[in-house]
Design a protein around this nucleic acid. Structure first.
Lengths: 212, 212
DNA sequence: TAGATTGTTAATCGATTAACAATC
DNA sequence: TAGATTGTTAATCGATTAACAATC
């Protein structure tokens, strides 16, 4: 079913948005949609949508369009939301707690199995049923749960050593909120960066452009 | 000094990262850097760095390189970090609180002047000296402070009406954590989206790829 | 001056859009 | 069948990399 070709990140990054729009269509009882109709709703070209979807194989029917529910399921499968990766969260400060509380992990292919922090003030608290553990316990939890991914909500200074330790424990993917450049030191590791500061500065740039 | 040409978003999105690297170099007492040296540290090509910087004018010196502090300041100026835009935060749930506590706004061209929420349980609490106000107060605060940007940490359902209201009050830029598609309804408004769910699904995709 | 490194033009690569034959 | 819409190829556009003359 898959085409086996290399899929570019430009395409992959559009998939979650398709997934959201298809979910809404599904919820609204819409069964069928054409690339033209979807393109108008999403503000894309129909051509791009067909090109994107064809990276993974022909989900559509000529002369008819795409079946919403089927397409939704296929994209979910491509994104890997039905395979839960055991994951730990490092750092239960403001950002770590927000992420832990806020994110619907199970619908995004992630299973949170541990939360860790250094601060005695925080250790022992619970977030969504998970007790915040001291960092000494990382090794146990990783081995026991076959942890493969980690969410990094710790300061940059602490990140370097932590990344080394986690990779040694078998972690191969990071959701990185810190400013530590993981890929620079480990080109082989899978990294998805969330640099909120960078994003905010980009907004600043835009705000200052339009004025001129 | 500026070249007046249109700068592509691909370039702009790299600027905050340059800015961070230059800050570190500066802190480490490094005065001069060549595009080659910087490219090795950042994992880019020297060609790209020179191409990027030249969008804004010639900051370098042939045969010598770039003066770290000068380049740092120039990029900061381009990003607009020295012009503080009065900004409010909508929604003081987990994500809103994390953002309010965590982000160094003043160094990124943003001045937070108000935090708003609906929940009586939260209203009256303080974050970094700012009292969380009921949403009825938005109009006062926006007018009084000439608010131009808003951080959207509210559920999607509430976003549509809120965006309308804020635009009417003169807000022209959004840092959007909600899943509401602002640009789709207001193509003229400046939007920087932070879709954490999308980002996490992209990590899921990567985790599932490498396995195969 | 000689060496180094930029600014800038040209070449390449990749992503998006347009076009249309295939086919439901 | 006729109309609609996909899958796919070709054309265009934009971004990155390479090359090199300009110059500090």
């Amino acid at each position: 079913m898959a085409k086996g070709e290399h899929i570019s990140m430009s395409v992959v990054r559009r998939l979650p948005r398709y997934y959201r729009f298809l979910y809404d269509l599904k919820e609204n009882g819409i069964v069928r949609i054409s690339s033209k109709e979807l393109s108008q709703r999403m503000g894309l070209t129909a051509s791009q949508i067909r090109q994107d979807l064809n990276c993974f194989g022909g989900f559509g029917q000529q002369g008819y369009g795409y079946i919403v529910e089927q397409l939704y399921n296929e994209i979910g499968r491509i994104l890997g939301v039905d395979v839960l990766t055991p994951t730990i969260l490092l750092g239960a400060g403001n950002m770590g707690r927000a992420v832990a509380n806020h994110m619907v992990f199970e619908q995004r292919g992630i299973k949170l199995v541990g939360i860790f922090d250094n601060s005695p003030r925080i250790i022992g608290q619970r977030i969504r049923g998970l007790e915040i553990l001291p960092t000494e316990r990382i090794d146990d939890v990783c081995i026991e749960n076959k942890v493969e991914a980690a969410i990094l909500c710790i300061p940059r200074e602490a990140s370097s050593d932590m990344v080394e330790r986690l990779i040694a424990l078998g972690v191969r993917g990071f959701w990185n909120f810190s400013h530590f450049d993981i890929s620079l030191h480990h080109p082989d590791v899978l990294v998805e960066n969330v640099h909120l500061g960078d994003s905010l500065m980009t907004l600043s740039y835009k705000l200052n452009q339009k004025t001129e």
